[in-house]
Design a protein around this nucleic acid. Structure first.
Length: 246
DNA sequence: TCATTAAATTGTT
DNA sequence: AACAATTTAATGA
């Protein structure tokens, strides 16, 4: 996974289609938008590549155009703790940018991803000048607070089916990840990495969730049928029976 | 456009 | 972890 060119050397300008797909761009006034569009950079990250590393000073506010990212903290003892996955349409790092601190998480691409970046100066300028931008940021911070509280509950849950369900409901959050819609492109292997379970167990859990009518399993992705059930459901004792030997 | 083949993903043990 | 089955993507006529 080692590439000779760094992420920042492979950047380019955003295409008009990519700009249109950015959720907060539509909340800006024309002159604000103009300034933002001129500053936004786009880069591609290969699977396994790091987008930001803990300790590096904040230089960009990031958004995911396409692909899948993992937000985690790696400890000195080699273990790592995954906080959350980031699906397309998600923007992150605003907390660090606001305070001009260093990044507190590692952001790693789980597969080939297209990432947008707003330079720190532009981010700060938008904060100082755009009411719509401030609304977006405030709304996002509030929504994410709810997610982190929910994530603490997920961590102490033993039932794998419920863990998978809750983690999925976070990825389907329409406020934080509006680009996801009702179909999330994620493989069972990728989901296993995010949740911290084996692929087999995730596969089994997905079958359970599907049996409950909460989701529909598709090749290379999932379709939500009942987001509320994913968030609140218990999915108890609905395991598949072992095959009979007669 | 269709058939063939390789690669990716899923389902099962 | 290994394997078979299925789906998609790539290739070329």
């Amino acid at each position: 996974m080692s590439s000779s060119t760094s992420l920042y050397q492979r950047r380019r300008n955003a295409t008009p289609e990519e700009i249109e797909a950015i959720p907060w761009i539509h909340l800006l006034q024309p002159h604000e938008r103009e300034r933002a569009v001129a500053a936004i950079l786009v880069t591609e990250a290969c699977a396994g590549e790091y987008v930001s590393a803990i300790g590096k000073p904040a230089s960009y506010w990031f958004g995911l155009i396409d692909g899948l990212l993992k937000m985690s903290a790696d400890h000195a003892d080699g273990s790592s703790m995954t906080f959350t996955g980031v699906p397309p349409g998600g923007w992150f790092g605003e907390g660090t940018c606001i305070k001009r601190e260093t990044y507190r998480y590692n952001i790693q691409a789980l597969r080939k991803s297209v990432i947008a970046g707003v330079p720190l100066e532009t981010f700060q300028w938008l904060l100082d000048h755009s009411l719509g931008f401030n609304r977006f940021i405030m709304n996002q911070l509030n929504e994410r607070l709810g997610q982190f509280i929910a994530a603490r509950e997920i961590d102490r849950m033993s039932n794998p089916d419920v863990r998978v369900a809750r983690s999925l409901s976070a990825l389907f959050n329409p406020v934080l990840y509006p680009a996801v819609g009702s179909v999330l492109r994620i493989t069972q292997q990728e989901l296993a990495y995010l949740v911290g379970l084996s692929r087999q167990r995730v596969n089994e859990a997905l079958a359970t969730l599907e049996a409950h009518g909460a989701i529909q399993v598709e090749y290379g992705g999932l379709r939500v049928m009942d987001l509320h059930e994913l968030r609140e459901g218990h999915f108890i004792s609905a395991r598949r029976q072992p095959t009979q030997t007669a």
